[in-house]
């Protein structure tokens, strides 16, 4: 194994880890953003907003991810290319495959995040909003200082799983040609004829990240716990 890693595959894997982690991190970040924004929109009181958000989460949680990725990848790529053509001087620009990759991961994970945030939000008593208003906080202040920190505390264990899923989701990127961990492993396996070594390395990487991820979230959960001590 060391031989393979030393003969250039090590670097390949390092860059693959970078790729996967970057897409996962961006996807995780944007899916949280989507979750918060969709929750706000669903609660905004606009006619049909809640139904629209439910439709979004329903569709994107019930269809297979791989289908969505391909679908989003091709339609989005086409749409973005078409848009770029409209801008003078941009017609020659090719979009990196990473953009649709991140967008599709975010949209799919965003559906899960939205469900999380909506459930967490629904758990916050109306009185918390009222206390904020009566103390003079603006809507934004109340959101950032009072409501979201409490939602965060309620959903943090689930955010941990979402973080894990976002890394797993990057394995799908190999099908649209992005050299992620899985794709690198499969290329290595094919060209060297040592599948166990290469897939073994891929598995090891995922396991290590899973452990790191759960460590981090266990720590975050621990920090949040202190104010629950003695809570009713």
């Amino acid at each position: 194994m060391i031989d393979y890693l030393a003969s250039g595959w090590g670097l390949q894997f390092l860059s693959a880890i970078g790729t996967s982690l970057t897409v996962a991190a961006l996807g995780f970040f944007f899916c949280i953003l989507i979750g918060i924004l969709c929750t706000l929109f669903a609660r905004s009181g606009f006619r049909g907003s809640a139904g629209l958000v439910s439709l979004y989460t329903y569709v994107f949680r019930s269809l297979p991810d791989i289908l969505l990725l391909i679908l989003i990848f091709y339609t989005l790529d086409g749409a973005i290319q078409a848009l770029l053509h409209l801008v003078p001087g941009m017609s020659g620009v090719r979009l990196s495959a990473y953009v649709p990759a991140v967008i599709s991961t975010s949209i799919v994970l965003g559906a899960y995040a939205t469900e999380l945030f909506r459930a967490g939000w629904a758990d916050i008593p109306q009185g918390q909003h009222e206390a904020g208003r009566s103390l003079g906080f603006t809507t934004l202040q109340s959101l950032v200082l009072i409501i979201l920190p409490q939602v965060y505390r309620k959903i943090i264990p689930h955010l941990g799983s979402l973080c894990l899923i976002s890394l797993k989701e990057t394995a799908l990127l190999s099908i649209i040609g992005i050299p992620d961990i899985v794709r690198t492993a499969s290329i290595g396996a094919r060209s060297t004829g040592a599948p166990f070594v290469f897939y073994g390395i891929a598995i090891a990487i995922f396991v290590i990240f899973a452990i790191l991820c759960s460590r981090i979230f266990a720590h975050l959960e621990q920090r949040v716990r202190q104010d629950r001590a003695g809570a009713r």
Partner: peptide
Amino acid sequence: VGMVFQQFNLFPHLTVLENCTLAQRWV
């Protein structure tokens, strides 16, 4: 106008002191 509710409505994620300073500082 200050208001006190039947259900207290303290902010559970903040200490007692932070509950008392939050609006002072931000509002």
